[in-house]
Simulated scan of single mutants.
Amino acid sequence: MTSAAVRVLLVDDQGLFREALATLLSVRDDIEVVGEAGDGAAAVRRVADLAPDVVLMDLRMPVLDGIAATRRMSADYPETKVIALTTFDDDADVFAALRAGAVGYLLKDVSSARLVEAVLAAARGESVLQPSVAAKVVARFAQLPPEEPEPAVPLSEREREVVRLLAAGNSNREIAAALFLAEGTVKNHVTSVLTKLGAHDRTQAALRARALGLL
């Protein structure tokens, strides 16, 4: 295991699912599963003890649910990034998890490749949303009344391509593959997009792009 490996905590009330996740992730040299927890309260304690880079968090658990646990982690351990990994994608869960501070939201039927990429992306500070979830976020924003006219934003055509893929839930690596660009180039484009849109993160950038009619 290399020192650069992403340290991951698995949180789910089903032991068999945690075991399967651990097996899937442990074959990677760039990921280290450092611990497990079966409920949200135990997860908060494990984060305090282990300081993982990323937590894969189920939402519906006993003792303390995943949303409440995510809220505590975001407040007390902001360096640890939480990805919701759940069976449910109803609006209430999606928006509650994101408001609590989750940087990602994936469903348990996600492919192993997508899950691994999500873990690595979260560790890099990127948001990771299942495409269906990204669509919910954008759709919810579209239903809100406009607060005031938005200024024109001078995005280049390449930046528009990047923001469209970003809004669809793609990571930098996936955007790079889609546009045949180096990942570092995509990272520079994303930084430029965030600056031009006045956004603090990728989700906010997607919302502002939608408001400006860029999607």
Rank of each mutant, 00 (worst) to 15 (best):
D58G: 06
E19V: 01
F141C: 07
R164G: 02
S26N: 12
G198A: 11
A176V: 01
N170F: 09
V186E: 11
M73R: 00
Q143H: 11
G66H: 07
V54E: 08
L107W: 11
A97M: 01
V44F: 11
A113I: 02
L21F: 13
A199N: 09
A211Q: 06
K108L: 08
F95R: 00
L115Y: 09
G169T: 04
L215Q: 03
G184L: 01
A102Y: 02
G101P: 02
D12L: 12
N188W: 05
V110N: 14
L214M: 13
A209I: 00
R158D: 15
V193H: 09
V110Y: 14
Q204D: 09
L212T: 01
A68M: 12
D53L: 01
L10C: 07
N188S: 11
R124I: 04
L207G: 07
V27T: 10
A206H: 01
L50M: 10
L129E: 05
D93S: 14
I175K: 03
G66D: 03
D89L: 08
K187P: 02
A97H: 00
G213Y: 08
A142R: 14
A142V: 06
D58E: 11
V82K: 00
D53C: 04
Q14N: 13
A22M: 12
S127L: 01
V27P: 01
D76Q: 15
V119D: 09
V138R: 14
L214N: 04
R46Y: 06
I175A: 09
L179D: 03
G38N: 14
V162G: 11
K187R: 07
V47T: 13
A134G: 14
A43F: 03
P52S: 08
E117L: 04
A42Q: 15
G198R: 08
V6M: 05
I31Y: 03
S127E: 04
A68N: 12
M73K: 00
A42F: 08
R72M: 13
V133L: 07
R7Q: 15
A96F: 00
V8C: 13
V153F: 02
A22N: 13
D90S: 04
S74D: 03
L98T: 00
L144T: 06
Q204C: 04
D90G: 06
P131R: 13
D90C: 10
G125A: 09
E183L: 03
Q14V: 07
L10Y: 13
R46P: 06
R46K: 11
P52Q: 05
L194W: 01
R160M: 06
R208T: 12
D76A: 15
V63S: 14
A51F: 05
D29E: 15
A211D: 03
F95W: 05
R72L: 14
V82W: 00
S3P: 06
A139K: 09
V153Y: 03
L64K: 15
A176L: 04
R46H: 04
S192C: 08
